[in-house]
Design a protein around this nucleic acid. Sequence first.
DNA 1: CGGCTTTGACCGGCGC
DNA 2: GCGCCGGTCAAAGCCG
Length: 125
Amino acid sequence: MPERKLGKIDNKYTLKIKSSGNGMADDGYKWRKYGQKAIKNSPYPRSYYKCTNPGCSAKKQVEKWRDEPDTLIITYQGLHLHPYSPFQDNNAATKKPRNQATKKLQHQILSTVLSHYCQALALKK
DNA sequence: CGGCTTTGACCGGCGC
DNA sequence: GCGCCGGTCAAAGCCG
């Protein structure tokens, strides 16, 4: 899967994470499911999510890894245009245990996104 | 009452 | 030129 046409499409970031136990990994942002399709190369269907925040065009797709039923492949497309994350805006970190996992996940995503973004910039130039 | 989720069908692009 | 796959949109229903 070549990715050298960054000047034409949005940046793409793929993260490999462990399933939350149900199949819905919350990364701290609000996502709206807009489609689900089965991939011929994977025994599991792929879910398509879009950011529900105003003015945000970030997209995300979730797919189950065939070699690891407990592993989810999250692919992020584009960058968030939100002022802040819903959790931070609510300051609900005081009464939500899953927030810790979310924060960690966010950090992981941010790290990966930054890394890929930097790479994309370097490749674009 | 509002918001979000789910399913089906359609369309476009690419490959052979 | 045809076929296949992936991706997106739209509408309806359900739940909180």
